[in-house]
Design a protein around this nucleic acid. Structure first.
Lengths: 226, 226
DNA sequence: CGGCTGTCTTAGCAACTCCTTAAGATGGTG
DNA sequence: CACCATCTTAAGGAGTTGCTAAGACAGCCG
């Protein structure tokens, strides 16, 4: 679960947010001053920081600059109702998103998720590589020997699932559970059909396979032919 | 208090702006010609420059280039109404913001404050570039191959959102949450309509797309065709 | 006030893609 | 060889997307 640090001098807000986010499963830490906040960022390295701009001991933007100087942690800024220019200035100072007080819990959580998703996306820009296959998960683009593959959603998900377990045999049941999600009632034959399509698009057949191997009686595995 | 230099040949406007801004507490200097303006920029190093593009002795953009060559002072450009192309070229020449005559005092002051705060934050205002698309986020101006796009507010926000995630597929739900800023506010079909309008203005259709690609069952992505 | 303009939303249908199922073909195993 | 697992193809239906049109609404101007 992601960890959150809230830097906010108003104790009531701090405790409220801490309680609510804890219930949602976040690990939450709090700091009442800029100095304390900085220390905790260094020590705890949270996944995201919620920063109140109205701290008593240091101007919010100054603190934001200092945070930016030492880490790339996403920062969601909370400001009192303000002008657009204020918001723009804040974002330009390096904030990743902003909230205008008073904000609802729903809003807060939405922003947190958005920011976390973005930073997670940044960390996974490296493609998955298996032999001549390259998979850019975020772009949902897969290439074979440099040429793009036209994959349907299920085919793509299936390929990603297999590519994340290169060399490991997975059962049809596993594939059904992970790629199809949901307690799905469909037959496992469906997996075979998609595997077949995937093979065709990878330029191979079951008999003459380079990447997708069948392990009789067990399941399927993706292998790196090199 | 910040100091402002206004370079404007029309004496009435110059005096009006000087009087109004002085009342607001700005230090205001004036210049009626390009040459005089340059001298004062060097001597007084104002915090922000208001530049009329219709000066008699030198083309406005030429002057802007010269200003940019000697200093990074923020420049707010004032142009006559109606010349979209002019505005775009001006922003590309290094202006920080623009005003269209006749402008209200409130507008002027808002732009000045915005520009001053931005420069105080020492942030760059590079446009977002995706292929032939340029987006000046602060000015809310977007161009395609150098020509202005007439985008509605939502269309612009949508384009900015996509442009900030070039090459990454985003779901309609994500778009709703981030651009519409209301979790589960309305139907996700609304997104499709705005996407369609955006495509039309970008000179493409879903079938023949250069920039906006649909990923069936997942969402939308903006791609750089180069 | 009333019409005008621009924008946003919703509805709805056509066109399209994708998934599932079924059924026969193929291949491995004892 | 008999049996069962796997492979492949075809086809209907479910779901998704694209786009037009019409209504709602706010801002603006006379």
């Amino acid at each position: 679960m992601p960890s959150v640090l809230i830097i906010e001098d108003d104790q009531r807000i701090r405790e409220l947010v801490t309680r609510v986010l804890s219930e949602k499963g976040y690990e939450v830490g709090g700091a009442a001053t800029a100095l304390d906040g900085l220390q905790r960022i260094v020590q705890d390295s949270p996944d995201v920081v919620i920063l109140d701009m109205g701290l008593p001991d240091l101007d919010g933007r100054e603190l934001l600059k200092m945070i930016r100087a030492i880490t790339d942690v996403p920062v969601v800024v909370a400001t009192a109702r303000g002008e657009d220019a204020e918001v723009i200035r804040t974002l330009d100072s390096g904030a990743d998103d902003y909230l205008i007080k008073p904000f609802s819990v729903e809003q807060l959580e939405a922003r947190l998720r958005a920011v976390l998703r973005r930073s997670a996306a940044d960390s996974s820009i490296m493609p998955i590589v298996v032999g001549g296959i390259q998979i850019h998960v975020e772009a949902r683009v897969a290439t074979l020997d440099g040429r793009a593959l036209q994959l349907s959603p299920k085919e793509f998900d299936l390929l990603v699932f297999l590519a994340n377990r290169v060399g490991v045999v997975v059962s049809r049941r596993q594939i059904m559970a992970e790629v199809w999600r949901q307690p799905y009632g469909g037959s496992e034959k469906t997996v075979d059909v998609h595997i077949s399509w995937l093979r065709k698009k990878l330029g191979e057949t079951a008999a003459q396979s380079r990447y997708i191997e069948t392990v009789h009686g067990v399941g399927i595995k993706l292998v790196d032919p090199t």
